[in-house]
Amino acid sequence: MSNTENPYVPLKARIQKIIQETSSPDLDVKTYRLSFEDGRSLEFMPGQFVEFSVPGIGECPFGFASSPLTKDYFEITIKRTGKVTDKIHTLKEGDFVWIRGPFGNTFPVEKFEGSDLLFVAGGLGLAPLRPFILYALDDTNRKKYGKIDMLLAARTSSDHCFAYEYDEWRAKGASVNLTIDNPEPAWKGLVGFPHNLIKDMEFDFSKLYAFLCGPPIMIKFVQGSLKEMGMPIDRLYTTLEMRMTCGVGKCGKCNIGRQYVCVDGPVFCMAELAEMPTEY
């Protein structure tokens, strides 16, 4: 449920910290660390999102990017793309924004206990997966999950989000594989698209769940590769984005058939999506 009685009413939040995630000239992604002015914490689970307002400019939905186990603050990762995100990118640490939520469903994290996890992300697609990654890697949860593999793609070596954290993820037992689209002189990671590279990775498909997020074309091709390799689609999950004005299933913008991405999603199992109209 929402953190205020009226789900349309946002609360004032202070920008504690801004982290520059990318350094390509044409891709500007920043992470905003926020906390509510009245001291309350935002209880959420991986997969959920908030509606983020800059009064006078507008409001947009963004997925959480931080761990649900962190109570002092929450983080939202935002690419400069349009009217509202242009404005957000001009804000400084100490400035205020307005937040309502959390909204949407969650990754059913308990269902995956005892299984191996594979995260495949393209660019900013890592942001909505990060809450689940941090949740699963946390000391209190790590033993509940088996192998944790990641294949993280970006256009160039300057575009990997949360790169400052990868060593810590590796220290907690995750295999973090990075790839970029084209070779670069100093690059030590992989080169190429995830749907090709994934074929060189080894999985125990009897106990694997995979989470894909990124450009639709990447999701489509990675899903194809995994299916070819023997992965059943009812073990593949993704999270969708849509224009969502209200976040509470009323405004009529985000529905795919009878399902509203804001309340029935944004997390969907691929088996479920296969039964839905392709209107996303």
Binding site: P55, G56, G58, R243, T245, C246, K250, C251, G252, K253
Partner: peptide, 28 residues
Amino acid sequence: CFEFKDVSKDGCVERYRCWDSCIYPKFT
């Protein structure tokens, strides 16, 4: 169906709910 629109008035911002239409291309 609806959209929100912020309006600045006398130095403060008001948020309005306005009818929108699924027939319009910018709706989604």
